[in-house]
């Protein structure tokens, strides 16, 4: 538990260093805990580690997006292949040979007489 010790400064000394406005609290607190050089190094190291972790997290996240993008690309390629196959099949079904051999075509007859109307 951190213990703070209140202490007072004279108004003059305060006014000499900084200008305060009226009725402002001029009391300040100072921690009794002093950080040594080792603690500083540890803190800096911790900060570096935290930043490193943040970087790694983001990099991993990006990589996971890359996997998703790759999967989507594969799906697009697969669907595109399927579309091509269907288009080819559609073209085959509508080919002249298929049309000629269809039941509809076989049941057609040659017109006996042809009349022309002017447009």
């Amino acid at each position: 538990m951190t213990v703070y010790t209140p202490y007072y400064s004279s108004r003059r000394s305060i006014n000499q260093s900084r200008s305060w406005s009226r009725n402002q609290n001029v009391t300040r607190f100072q921690s009794n805990i002093k950080l040594g050089p080792v603690a500083h190094i540890v803190l800096v190291a911790l900060m570096v580690v935290v930043l490193g972790l943040i970087y790694l997290t983001q990099a991993t996240k990006t990589t996971s997006y890359d996997y998703q993008a790759d999967n989507i690309d594969s799906q697009i390629a697969s669907l595109s292949d399927q579309k091509s196959d269907l288009e080819v099949e559609n073209a085959r079904l509508q080919s002249l040979q298929n049309v000629k051999n269809s039941d509809v075509a076989k049941s057609m007859t040659t017109p006996v007489d042809t009349n022309y109307i002017s447009e």
Binding site: D81, S84, D85, E87, V88, A91, Q94
Partner: peptide, 9 residues
């Protein structure tokens, strides 16, 4: 137009 030549994988 109708397809005469297409591509297939």
């Amino acid at each position: 137009p109708v397809v005469l030549v297409s591509n297939q994988t």
